[in-house]
Amino acid sequence: MLNPWAILMLAGLFEIVWAASMKASDGFTRIGPSILTGITAFISFWLLAMAMKDLPLGTAYAVWVGIGAVGAALLGIMVFGDAATPLRIGGIVLITAGIVALKLA
C-alpha cells in the first residue's frame, strides 16, 4: 500500500487536472474536456478518501485543496494566460507555506 501522503499528493495532482479540464470544457460545452473533468474528479475524490483513512480530516482536506489551488493557479498563469501579479504569486507562496506547515504538524 502506498504511503497516505503519496496518495494525497496524487489526489491533489488529479484535482489540478480536473480543474484545468473544467476550464477547457467551456462550461461543459466541449465533450472531451467534460468527460476528463468527471473522470479525474472521481479519481481525485477517491484518492482523497483513501488518504483520509490514515490522515486527519482537516490536514488531508486542507493539503488536498492547497495542492489543487496552487497547481491550478500556476497552470492558469502558464497555460491560460492569467496574470502573474505580485499579489497572486504571494498568495501561491502563502498557500504553499500552509501546506508545508500542515505536513510538518
Score class of each variant (00 low, 15 high):
G27E: 05
V63H: 14
M9Q: 12
I35V: 15
M78D: 02
A73N: 11
F28L: 03
A83W: 12
A6K: 07
K103A: 07
I92W: 10
G98T: 13
I89D: 09
A11S: 02
L8W: 06
A101I: 13
F28Y: 10
A105P: 06
I92P: 06
I31S: 13
A84I: 08
W46V: 15
A20N: 09
T37Q: 06
A83P: 15
W46R: 11
S25M: 05
G91L: 02
T37G: 08
I99L: 09
L57G: 04
L48A: 00
A41L: 15
V65N: 02
M22W: 06
W64Y: 13
I67Y: 05
S21Q: 04
S44K: 00
M50P: 00
G71R: 11
L75C: 10
P56C: 05
G68N: 08
F80G: 01
A97V: 07
I67G: 00
L75S: 13
D82S: 04
P4H: 06
W64E: 07
V65E: 00
I67Q: 03
D82Q: 12
G71Q: 05
V65T: 09
L13K: 14
V93Y: 00
A84C: 14
I67K: 04
Y61I: 07
L2F: 15
F42P: 07
R88W: 13
I43G: 09
G71P: 04
W64M: 03
G76K: 04
G68F: 02
L94Q: 06
D26S: 14
G68Q: 03
L13Q: 08
G27R: 09
P33K: 10
A11M: 00
S21N: 11
A101P: 10
A6V: 15
S44A: 01
I16K: 10
K103E: 10
G91D: 04
